[in-house]
Design a protein around this nucleic acid. Sequence first.
DNA 1: AGTAACCGCAACATCAGTGTTGCAGATATC
DNA 2: GATATCTGCAACACTGATGTTGCGGTTACT
Lengths: 181, 181
Amino acid sequence: MRADAARNLVTVLRTGARLLAEDPSTSMAAIATAAGVDRTTVHRRFASREALLRAVFQAKLDASERVLDEARLTEAPVPVALHRYLEGIIPVSRDWPVDTRRMMQQDPAARDRRDALSERLDAFLRRAAAEGHLRADVDSAWTYAALGRLVDTVAHDFPTLDAPQAADLVADTFLNGFGAR
Amino acid sequence: MRADAARNLVTVLRTGARLLAEDPSTSMAAIATAAGVDRTTVHRRFASREALLRAVFQAKLDASERVLDEARLTEAPVPVALHRYLEGIIPVSRDWPVDTRRMMQQDPAARDRRDALSERLDAFLRRAAAEGHLRADVDSAWTYAALGRLVDTVAHDFPTLDAPQAADLVADTFLNGFGAR
DNA sequence: AGTAACCGCAACATCAGTGTTGCAGATATC
DNA sequence: GATATCTGCAACACTGATGTTGCGGTTACT
């Protein structure tokens, strides 16, 4: 593939992710215009609208897997791994703001990859609980779900915070909650 | 309006809310079929698709305002008001699972109503902090956003919990977080 | 029981989004 | 500079969703 074609491709993907997050029914034409290319150019790279959506979600999964790898969730000390994960995943959530659960219905392969990611993070949270860093009386599914929502919230509703600040905030809230003591 | 017409109307509204939450691009035809009425019947009640969406969000706002009124956020003791609010708002989130922020763009009147609700809840959270129930070192906007996400998460991802159980879980997590102590 | 309101059905027009093709010009790469 | 690749543009066909209308039959209300 030629270099300019590759550039256009990533531009379309990132623009598409942004617009589709705001409005999941955004048309191919709107994405093409916002990306600064012709509508037919998008169709040349992505055979169908569904193919474009798949590519966007794949890009998010790629980035997420990289973050989990680099966080070393199974080996690093729990507080270190947690913070490294948060600092990595918040920019991913910002770059690919699409809602993962929506698409997963029609793309079984993507769903499997996402399930694998979920399981890795869930295992980390169970280890954190076993090692005494998290409460043992709370369902890990609830812990996992709440952490994910905190990440998305800080990523999209507090865009002025940079990644380290946002990670600090999420970690503090996640561990200590909002109650005075 | 005749009684059967009123019944159909609420059925369409609730069915629409459910389907539109799963997929915001659900067609009027799909909503009509799922609600057990003809497509033209829906069009007789709602002049356009946009009108149907507005009605769904209005219904959610109506229910939310009722909950906030009954929670007596300005008078009741903070722990009581918080629990009463949670126990009321979780069923609302389940009955009207649509994402409020999406629609608010095109409907200024609805956005104003939603802003008023936000302000009431935010004022409650500020009172809670002032009376020593919440940490004073956390931005109330973050507190508000996080609480809202916890509510939505428990409402949709943990449907087996009944409202009181879910409210207990959210209140516990909100106040204490997930860290061991 | 009579009346007004409501509904389903069929048919139609309209419109926006999707996907395709051919070609001429521009651009990266060698 | 030659070549292969990519792009924009124009044109076209197709599909699905939206919105409307008229009519005959059904259902709620008094």
